[in-house]
């Protein structure tokens, strides 16, 4: 198996789908000549031409809305919004249009749209370029929300998202683009709505998303040395959520910690905790714990930025407290 970066895996997914289906095209700010500000679409304009890799004006509402309109009428657009922070400008088109037309038309109109965007901290770009807004999108019936944490998942999930007949908000973490991992040659898909167990263990389940999967994995390695055996579940898709896999894991470990970068209030972790309580309450030996971003905008200064999102150490400390706390 080849080792590839998350960035290259994403590009391969788009390239393969564009070769497979002439209706697939890319539109977004600086996706053409520049190859995307994080280099994800590099080279695609040269290969497919300006007709299928379109640089757009800085018009987020029109990007999301025009992509939706194109999707409703036979195309399969991959629209890019540079930062998830700016999907707020596109929200009417996503929430009131893309998410609703299949339903409002009694199932007659399909909206096979992928909206790719980037999330998260790490580049010291402060309050308007570093947020985690997946809960906004996941709150809307009709939208699917995907957050891959590895190159393998990134490619397989993006291909599935492109083939899906629903609007999919596909959220990439900017600190994962250079991460390397195994990506098979040849065709494969990762289904939407299916969680993955990134590490098997018996003492405590951690459910983590996006960049936090890596941090939770690092915490798990450290804890292994202390005799604590973590099972790490990555939902990969936030909506639809694979609660079954999470509950199965909880039934095995009887403890649950949820880790995400977004702040906790009304976050995805609140949904997961509630669903586990509803479906597997008697499997739990202890209350569910959330380790989340703190309740503040993302500050600029590096030490402050690092402070407001969960660190490996913070995750490990929460596990120790949960596993050993009762002893």
């Amino acid at each position: 198996m080849a080792i590839k970066t998350y960035r290259d895996a994403l590009r391969e997914a788009m390239r393969e789908e564009m070769l497979r289906d002439a209706m697939v095209f890319i539109m977004g700010e600086d996706v053409g000549v520049y190859g995307g500000i994080f280099g994800v679409t590099a080279g695609l304009r040269d290969e497919f031409g300006e007709g299928r890799v379109k640089d757009t004006p800085i018009s987020e509402a029109a990007i999301a809305g025009a992509a939706t309109g194109a999707a409703m009428t036979g195309m399969r657009p991959i629209a890019e919004i540079m930062f998830v922070d700016f999907t707020t400008i596109a929200m009417d088109q996503l929430v009131n249009q893309a998410a609703k037309w299949h339903y409002m038309s009694g199932g007659r109109i399909k909206v096979p749209l992928v909206l790719r965007t980037t999330t998260g901290i790490g580049r010291r770009t402060a309050a308007q370029h570093s947020q985690s807004l997946e809960a906004w999108h996941a709150h809307v019936p009709g939208l699917k929300v995907v957050m891959p944490s590895t190159p393998y998942d990134a490619k397989g999930l993006l291909k599935s998202a492109i083939r899906d007949d629903n609007p999919v908000v596909f959220i990439e973490h900017k600190m994962l683009y250079n991460e390397k991992g195994e990506v098979p040659e040849g065709e494969y898909l990762v289904p939407l709505g299916k969680a993955d167990i990134k590490r098997e263990g018996s003492d405590c389940t951690i459910v983590a998303t996006s960049l936090m999967v890596r941090r939770a994995l690092a915490a798990a390695e450290a804890l292994a040395g202390e005799g604590i055996d973590i099972e790490l579940v990555d939902p990969r898709t936030i909506r639809p959520l694979d609660i079954e896999t999470i509950c199965t894991s909880v039934s095995k470990t009887h403890r649950l910690i949820i880790v995400h970068e977004a702040c906790g209030f009304c976050g995805v972790g609140a949904e997961i905790a509630t669903e586990v309580m509803e479906q597997a309450f008697f499997e739990l030996d202890a209350p569910v714990v959330r380790v989340t971003g703190k309740e503040a905008p993302i500050p600029f200064s590096p030490s402050l930025e690092d402070y407001v999102v969960p660190s490996v150490e913070e995750i490990a400390a929460a596990v120790r407290c949960l596993v050993k706390g009762g002893e």
Partner: peptide, 8 residues
Amino acid sequence: RGKGGSMH
């Protein structure tokens, strides 16, 4: 106070 940076 270091919370905004160049852009803010």
